[in-house]
Nucleic acid binder design. Structure first.
Lengths: 340, 340
DNA sequence: CCTGGCACTCGACTCTAGCGAGTGCCAGTC
DNA sequence: GACTGGCACTCGCTAGAGTCGAGTGCCAGG
């Protein structure tokens, strides 16, 4: 059941028109707006085949056709050429991201930028801790039995945790501890620290030991287990564009899903090396998002992946532009972080 | 134009019924469901007066009455007794907040809890930097010309900034700098630091001076100007409860407003000492939120105010419960932070 | 294989009529 | 003077009928 070129052209035209107008598209409109070189009747026959194959669908008998998820999939895979960004968009990206003062700032600007450019909901994951290395560990005495542990990662992320010591500790010991953990851990990837931390504990003896034991627990929590991946979100208001037409009027499940960090991580986090990932409608594992499409990718300096970012929108989105924008923003952010 | 007791009772009944049923309430229903001891006709007369005074309103000529913003205001001010929380709710609060490991965690749990209990959008401001004191300043060398400045506030907040030095700086100088800034600034409220920082700069001379000048700029930015108040948000999905009835079907402006940190701060940030603030409909300064009511308060240990929290919902909300919940949560969080 | 023509389908829209909740007013009663 | 029962009236909501037209599927002819 191969689809010949014209049928593919028809599918493309349907997708493009439907995305643009948001209304089921009929055969007559189609030949008027695209140079297909055939009559409406022929297009109708093609459409019948496309429908039979599951690429398009009629909302009601005697209405135009609407692409199915499968139709969008084919469109994305084979029919769309990625639209290059306009110079204006490129400039917007640069202007927006220049002048960010720290990591928080970069992430915030990025997510807003992405939401604005795509006119959709944007999601940006903070550089993943698992993929970062320790740049510095700081121990700040808060009281005689309390320390504040501050971990600075090479990606610029800073994590802190309170350490409740089993007993009072003299200031000099804090300095020793600090030096010790820094010597051993700086430069290693967070994912690789557990054995090193364990070795540290085994090694230390004397009065420093109880403190070291406690500290090691917190260290492991902070560096590995806690793994609290952070996420920034923007543009939820864009869900209301197109009135209640998209999402058949029930934003509820989508808003709910977007509030679950775990869900978002699943969306954005499973990155393949700088490849675009497009999940259309039913392809989404998350039930609440079956009515949406998700375009995501990883970002990072060079080929390293630090985290993911992407957008969530109606299945009827402008895939070529969206994909182009997401890719461009990811690239810029990656480069930006490379400078740190 | 005094309203006698019965008229007030009628208003109260109207508010309560309307909040419960979401439908305009008529005179007959009213006498049936409340023991007013008079006939519908009498109630109608009272209602006519209440309408004339602007407390209630008819959506259409022959429909029941609906409270106006002014009506809700009177209700909140004079007619509602605050509902005590149920034991289940108290327990929920305790269970939810116990076990928070750090400030981020506390704030996140709080905002989710608040959203869940009130079934509305919850907003929690991180403990305000302006009201915090410096607990410790750390300078971490990143390269010979770069430092990471980490500021730990007594509220547990940690802020970091990259410092680009004008030239290379030896490690010993970093130690000197660190000691200097800590000596002078630890313990002072952030709002009070500018003159001290200035004094520091004036005082330092020699080779340390250029670095100190740069550092002071960043310090001032981080401590004072930047003032990046952080905000956590949860429960936006609750906006869709009640279908499209509330907010006349356009969530748009509300979602937009909720994404603006500045707007949220205005909502939540202007706290009076542990007093509840209720802004009803038109009373909101923010145009996009004219269709909503905002219940907010400050929180902090004892009488100190660290930040604000509150909820945003339809004007037709259950004020007594909402107010009780917001107050209770604020109190718990305040106590919790007092333990740090 | 494509095309023009044609009968058919069916949702969207308009219009009308009837229903009923709710009102305002008034005359009568305690 | 305050309350009540009664009554005419308003007007949004719903259901049903009718019309319109975009769009289709099919077929015969080029």
């Amino acid at each position: 059941m191969g689809l010949d070129d014209r049928k593919l052209a028809v599918l493309r035209a349907i997708v493009e028109d439907y995305v643009a107008t948001q209304e089921p598209v009929g055969s007559k409109m189609l030949v008027e707006r695209h140079q297909l070189g055939v009559s409406p009747a022929t297009v109708r026959n093609d459409m019948a085949v496309l429908e039979e194959e599951g690429y398009i669908q009629q909302p009601h008998t005697s209405a135009g056709r609407v692409p199915t998820d499968r139709g969008y999939r084919l469109f994305v895979d084979r029919l769309s050429r990625v639209k290059p960004l306009t110079p204006a968009e490129r400039r917007a990206i640069e202007r927006f991201l220049v002048g960010a003062v720290d990591l928080d700032d970069v992430v915030h600007r990025t997510v807003r930028l992405l939401a604005q450019l795509t006119r959709q909901v944007a999601v940006v994951q903070y550089p993943s801790l698992a993929r970062s290395s320790v740049r510095h560990l700081e121990l700040v005495p808060i009281s005689t039995t309390r320390l504040m542990l501050v971990m600075i990662a090479d990606t610029g992320r800073v994590e802190q945790r309170l350490v409740e010591l089993p007993g009072p500790i003299p200031p000099d010991d804090v300095i020793d501890l600090r030096q010790l953990v820094n010597e051993r851990l700086v430069g290693t990837r967070l994912a690789d620290t557990p054995p090193l931390v364990q070795a540290l504990v085994d090694e230390v003896s004397g009065e420093l030991r109880p403190a070291m034991v406690t500290l090691s627990t917190v260290l492991l929590e902070t560096l590995v287990e806690r793994h609290e991946e952070r996420i920034a979100l923007a543009g939820t208001a864009n869900l209301t564009r197109g009135g209640l037409l998209d999402f058949q009027g029930s934003l509820r499940p989508i808003l709910e899903a977007l509030e679950e960090e775990v869900v978002l991580l699943k969306l954005i986090g499973e990155v393949e090396p700088s490849a675009m990932r497009v999940r259309i409608g039913d392809e989404n594992e998350i039930d609440n998002l079956r009515a949406t499409s998700v375009v995501s990718t990883g970002y990072g300096p060079g080929v390293t992946i630090l985290g993911g970012l992407g957008v969530v929108g109606p299945t009827r989105m402008d895939y070529p532009s969206t994909i182009a924008t997401v890719r461009a923003v990811a690239r810029y952010v990656g480069d930006l972080l490379a400078q740190n």
